[in-house]
Nucleic acid binder design. Structure first.
Lengths: 198, 198, 198, 198
DNA sequence: AATGAATGAGAGTTCATTCAT
DNA sequence: TATGAATGAACTCTCATTCAT
């Protein structure tokens, strides 16, 4: 990189690098804080964890939904991209669906403020909600459709409803050791299976 | 006059009647507000809706949990009492379980701040949580056990987990018309059914 | 009004007796509560201790100062009346003054919210203040004057100032065992003594 | 006169001032308010007087004790530092003690909410209390000890008691012009003097 | 006359958001 | 651009005082 005007360009570059670094720090910090304090955690707390000022958060993420969305974007992407691969590689469409739901649940219970955020009716999270569904609903639809087409499961279940249901089942997962969302989700899948021919 | 009891007592009784009326107003108002603003709604809002001062709420319900518990106590009781009757009257234990879950869901989606409150990890709702479980878990256990004993459903599902799951599925029921918790719960029940002998 | 209806009279009498009894209960209760919670104790607390309603307190003692004054009136009277007797019976006017101050201090430290109330600039206690001074200042003045006249103590000290000073020294008496107002008051008295003729 | 502009809209509500300047404003305001309303004055009142928001007070002084301590710290320091100098410069230890007490009283009556705060049994002021004593008791002890050693005053008086006594005498100084704590303190000092040999 | 339920002003405290530096 | 000080609305809770019974 050549810099004829060292001060001007260098400072611009420096700032850019700073900004990127800040954004990364913020995302990591927010992810951590969301886990311990939920997605409604005080901005201060996130800023402190990231080692930046509060204003910096507002610059990068004007609304809370922007931040939450950004925090989970990578995982949402990964989850979305896994759909087709699983469908291609699994023994059966149902097996692919099961594996995808496993990923989905991993994601939700790992970042455990998320399930709460997703069901929150607060308009604050509308953007997250939208992004989440726009990206994942088609993937879920594809898997679900394939399983139906293969005759593995009965038709009639909508991807939106299934995703909401799984998401809801993941809420408050760790408040009591007696509650394990995966067991219930397994029951759901059992319920989806085509009743055997008489 | 035959009033052996001093008038002091009579007047005390009268005041009580007022207080009772106020309590009712409060319970109705709180139930309404919980629906629109959640169980964390500001005390002022509830007081305003009930047409009473804030202090009146504190008098009747010293803590928020007291209020929430009181709001839902009647329904919890009704639900608890329905269990044995349904078991006695239904065609099969599974049918009884299904009907009881219907009642349970009716309850949760009608007073829909409740599902939120129940899963809230906030210690503020510990009392409600405890009351809820103490009262309903045994009922659910009985129905579940009977269905297992009759061979209608597979064993291994705990009443606590089932209730939590159903409760979670009822969260945010009306944020989107595409989501109907009952359909998912029906799937859960399907999943619980004993796989037919080979 | 003619007392045609006996019940009218009877009830009036009954109420009077009740009122007197209530007043006594209130004074005792207030005295106790003042000791533990200060003269600013919540009205509720006093009412509860006395076993009466709050309204009853307001009926008997419209302002807090009225109650405080009433609570301490007996002791103020006793203290006031002791002055002349002590002067008549003691070995010297200084000794009488010392004994009277002892009584005064007993009074203040026994009812330990009192010293605080007396110095409180809050107008709430103006009535108490006034009553207190009206009654005791002349007594103190008499004792002080006699001691001065006898040549026991130097002239120049005003009874108001001496009483305020002693009252202040009694404040917070029991917050620390290292603090004993009597030792300081004894020093004050030493300081009042006529310096020995050269 | 330039007041033609519609100054009704206070756009120049100097929102952001230097933090240090704000602290100073806060300390001055608090000192003033403590004088008129006592050290228990509402936070809002102090904030209003300082022209800042309430949050600013919490930022600078998280607890009330922090604020009270800060308000009086400078004077406490000055008083503490004066002790040794006075002892070195005065004609006699007793004279040094007298001068130090003069300073001490100046301090208390100038910032006269302080005497109240010091005797307050509320645990809220424990920090102030502790700081006050930690800093001044040793100074008072030194002066007192020197005066005893020099034979100027009788032994047996503890610095804690003397300071509490003087502090108490300064309470409510200006509620009545007839009351002057200095006259009583002078009597105390007189009382401390060694009784002349028989 | 007595009661105590009801009222609501007022105090403490938190935190999202703005904006001077 | 980044910072974090400042603001103030919003919330909880307490208690003096009133007033219907």
């Amino acid at each position: 990189m050549s810099a004829e005007s060292p001060s001007g360009k260098a400072s611009a570059r420096t700032k850019r690098a700073d900004a990127v670094r800040n954004q990364q720090a913020l995302l990591s910090a927010a992810a951590e804080v969301f886990v311990t304090s939920g997605v409604d955690a005080p901005i201060r707390q996130i800023a402190a964890k990231a080692g930046v000022g509060m204003g910096t958060i507002y610059r990068h993420f004007p609304t809370r939904a922007d931040l939450v969305t950004a925090v989970y974007r990578h995982q949402i992407e990964a989850c979305a991209e896994a759909g087709p691969s699983l469908l291609a590689g699994a023994d059966s469409p149902l097996e692919a669906l099961r594996q995808w739901i496993d990923l989905f649940v991993d994601f939700l219970v790992t970042k455990h403020g998320l399930a709460d955020a997703l069901q929150s009716d607060s308009s604050r999270f509308a953007a997250l909600h939208t992004y989440f569904l726009d990206r994942l609903e088609p993937v879920c639809a594809q898997l679900l459709g394939a399983a139906v087409d293969a005759g593995d499961i009965r038709p009639g279940t909508q991807p939106y409803e299934l995703m909401r249901g799984i998401g809801n089942l993941c809420i408050g997962r760790d408040s009591d050791p007696r509650y394990d969302p995966r067991r219930l989700i397994e029951l759901l899948l059992q319920g989806l299976r085509q009743p055997p021919p008489a």
